[in-house]
């Protein structure tokens, strides 16, 4: 049972089902139940300059958004929290889709409001021995959720939304998807957004 990704099925109103697929060991994934789809006030819109930030990375050191200016398109993936169902089954998909990001000359920055030790344990558990996470995972822990807040994706309970933003090399926000927190965004939607951003 350890070698199993558990599918958490929450039946909503009969036919509609929410599927949270968590990676890793069943016992470690905290069942959050069905949450309010979105719970934050937008602060950014398409065409805005993406606010710069500097956050500590799990691999050590700090990462600033501005270091990619003029060099890489940037995808920011905010996820609510480590050790929760859908989040644990989102980044592993991006981890094996590096080609998609490379194709569009893009880097992925994964951000949660968890602290570094938590993110260390979680990402270590979700990655393969043969395939370590290729993208930086950043901690927006202290001041708590400051970056998520600036990006308008901090929920009232203090975790981030499940949000994807694409920022083109010129630092402009080209795509915002504050997704239903209970669902995983489709990869093709991100692919389309990257295609569009890479044209700028």
């Amino acid at each position: 049972m350890g070698m199993l990704c558990i599918a958490v099925l929450v039946i909503m109103g009969g036919a509609d089902a929410v599927y949270g697929q968590s990676s890793g060991f069943t016992a470690y994934i905290y069942p959050v139940g069905n949450l309010k789809p979105t719970d934050s006030i937008p602060t950014l819109k398409i065409g805005d300059i993406a606010p710069d930030f500097t956050l500590p990375a799990v691999e050590g050191g700090k990462i600033s958004l501005s270091q990619y200016r003029g060099k890489k398109n940037v995808v920011i993936s905010f996820v609510p929290a480590a050790w929760t169902p859908v989040c644990s089954g989102q980044w592993p998909g991006y981890n094996i889709s590096k080609n998609l990001f490379d194709k569009h000359d893009a880097i992925l920055l994964g951000i949660t409001v968890d602290n570094i030790p938590t993110l260390y344990a979680w990402t270590k558990q979700m990655s393969n021995p043969d395939e370590k996470l290729w993208f930086p995972v950043l901690s927006d822990f202290y001041p708590h959720g400051a970056v998520a807040s600036r990006y308008g994706v901090l929920r009232s309970e203090g975790v981030a939304e499940r949000a994807l933003l694409v920022i083109s090399k010129d630092g402009i926000v080209r795509y915002i998807d504050v997704h239903d927190i209970n669902r995983r965004p489709l990869l093709e939607d991100l692919a389309r957004a990257l295609e569009e951003a890479s044209n700028h």
Binding site: Q21, S23, G89
Partner: peptide, 10 residues
Amino acid sequence: YSLYCPHCQR
């Protein structure tokens, strides 16, 4: 399987 499942990947 699922694209998003590390154990399937393994």
